[in-house]
Amino acid sequence: MAAVEPVVGEPAAVADLGEKRALLVADVHAGIEIGLRYERGVELESRAAERRDRLCSLIDETGVDRLVVLGDLAHRVGAPEGEERAELETLVAAVTDRVPMTLIEGNHDAGVAEAFADDIDVIDPRGGVLRGNGGGPHGSGVAVLHGHTRPDPALRSADVVCMGHEHPQVRLEDAVGGSRTERAWLRGPLKPSVFDDDADSGPKDGADPPSDGPELIVFPAFNERSGGTWINVEGGSFLAPFLPEGLDAGDAYLLDGTRLGDFRRI
């Protein structure tokens, strides 16, 4: 059985691939401060160096053989250029000086694969399966996708499916009405009908036995400024075309490992 274990206190996990191990992160959104400047006129001091150093430190501390980004390595939708491209070049160079890098194409990664074709391996947005060499044909094991599309039906036999895109977060309130926002993990059994190509509006009939599908792990965003999906707020809207209907049950966890229980009841 494939194993994916979160790194305590971090929005990252280590996948055991047999002879190899990979560090998985999602939604790095490199260049977010540059994007916010152009998109919204918001001026924020860049944290690019801090995020890069944190990512490289995680690679070093976990002793992995590869970094896998579950989509949205870049922030701006479109081919990277100017300051954003420079930030990406520095980030990719820092990572690949340590380990090979794999990117599952996200909805923000248009042009990234082409721009860095000589530096990173790329997996189609509908997903693939990680193996000892970091990638390969479909089959059982650790499946990866971004989450803005339905997964490839061939991933149905995976032990676990890892995705990003949602940036799950929870709002926690105290006894006196104060509140805070925390990034969170979401884990639960994925309905097999999620993999049906003709399922346009969610799984059919809601009758799939939960145990028949792989475990789904929705990763928190690596970028702390990228916002996200409120998974415990009434009216919160999921982004993936198969969530939340594709989960019969799912538990939320904070980065420190605290289990919050069923995300629908938090």
Results as ranks from 00 to 15, higher is better:
Asp256Asn: 06
Gly213Ala: 05
Gly213Arg: 11
His165Ile: 11
Leu24Asp: 03
Leu190Pro: 01
Arg51Asp: 07
Pro210Met: 07
Ala158Asn: 01
Val142Arg: 12
Gly9Lys: 00
Ser46Ile: 15
Val161Met: 11
Gln169Lys: 02
Ser46Asn: 12
Gly135Asn: 11
Glu114Arg: 14
Leu17Val: 13
Val129Asp: 06
Ala143Trp: 03
Gly63Leu: 11
Trp185Asp: 03
Asp248Cys: 09
Arg98Asp: 03
Leu73Tyr: 10
Arg265Tyr: 06
Ser237Pro: 00
Gly257Met: 00
Asp119Phe: 10
Gly31Asp: 02
Ile104Phe: 12
Ser157Gly: 10
Gly206Asn: 05
Val170Cys: 03
Pro6Phe: 08
Glu89Phe: 09
Ala249Met: 02
Glu84His: 00
Val142Ser: 06
Asp208Cys: 09
Gly139Leu: 06
Ala13Cys: 08
Leu36Asp: 12
Gly35Met: 06
Asp205Trp: 09
Ser211Lys: 10
Pro11Met: 01
Cys56Asn: 08
Leu243Met: 15
Tyr253Phe: 15
Val99Ala: 08
Arg54Met: 10
Pro210Glu: 10
Gly18Met: 08
Asp109Met: 08
Leu254His: 11
Leu145Glu: 04
Met163Gly: 06
Asp121Gly: 13
Gly71Phe: 03
Phe263His: 03
Arg150Pro: 01
Pro214Lys: 15
Pro11Tyr: 04
Ser201Lys: 14
Ser140Thr: 15
Glu61Asp: 15
Asp53Cys: 11
Gly236Leu: 13
Ile266Glu: 00
Gly139Val: 13
Ala154Met: 12
Ala94Arg: 02
Glu5Cys: 12
Gly106Trp: 09
Gly177Leu: 07
Arg183Asp: 12
Ser193Gly: 08
Asp212Phe: 09
Leu255Lys: 07
Leu24Glu: 02
Phe222Leu: 11
Leu255Trp: 06
Leu55Thr: 03
Ala74Trp: 05
Glu45Met: 13
Phe222His: 04
Pro100Asn: 13
Glu89Trp: 08
Asp60Trp: 04
Lys204Glu: 04
Ile123Gly: 01
Gly178Thr: 11
Ala74Thr: 10
Pro153Phe: 06
Asp174Thr: 07
Arg51Thr: 10
Pro210Leu: 14
Asp198Ser: 14
Arg51Tyr: 09
Ser211Asp: 08
